[in-house]
Simulated scan of single mutants.
Amino acid sequence: MLAFYQNILYNFFISLGVMIGGCLFGGIAATFNGHPPLKTMLDLCEKIKIWAIIVALGGTFPSFKVLEIGIFNGEIRGLVKQVIYILSALLGAHIGYRLIYYLESSGPL
């Protein structure tokens, strides 16, 4: 049971880290290339959100396999666990997106 809660936290923080790290380093690259960093960061947030979720889940095939077994073989417990893992990763990616979005909107007054 402890591993279940640990995996929820891992999924959340991995997807959050992918979002924030990817967008921040993308903003640095945009600065070096002469593009507006905050606009580039927002564009990257929209593009890498799904990838942050996939990275947190460890790829798509194990997740789909668990979903398939849960749906077709009636193993509801595994299905519920996988849905919670997906929601945790989705929440982490969304919070990362919102943090970058708030960073952009907190410009000079």
Rank of each mutant, 00 (worst) to 15 (best):
N7F: 09
A30Y: 06
R77T: 12
H94T: 09
P62H: 04
Y5L: 15
G22W: 02
F25D: 10
L90M: 10
G26V: 08
C23P: 04
L109R: 15
G26H: 06
M19R: 01
Y102C: 11
M19V: 09
C45N: 05
G34F: 05
L90S: 13
Y5F: 13
R98P: 02
L44Y: 07
K39T: 07
G74V: 05
L91I: 08
L57T: 03
I50M: 12
V66Q: 05
Y10C: 08
V66N: 05
F4A: 10
L24M: 13
D43H: 01
V18P: 06
M41D: 10
E75S: 05
G92E: 00
I69W: 00
M19S: 07
Q82W: 01
N11T: 10
G17T: 01
L109Y: 06
E104V: 09
L2W: 01
G26K: 04
Y102D: 11
I28F: 06
F72I: 12
G22L: 07
K39D: 15
G27S: 09
P37F: 07
G22N: 09
F61K: 13
Y85R: 11
I28R: 08
G21A: 08
I86N: 04
C23T: 12
E104Q: 04
K65T: 14
P108L: 11
I20Q: 02
D43C: 07
I48S: 07
I100Q: 02
G70H: 03
L79Y: 00
V55M: 15
E68A: 14
I84W: 00
L90A: 15
C23L: 05
I95E: 02
I84A: 13
L87R: 00
I100T: 07
G26P: 06
R98T: 05
V66E: 13
I84R: 00
G26D: 12
I50H: 08
K47N: 11
L90Q: 00
F12W: 07
I28K: 14
V66H: 02
G70N: 06
G26E: 09
A30D: 04
L24Q: 13
H94S: 11
P108R: 15
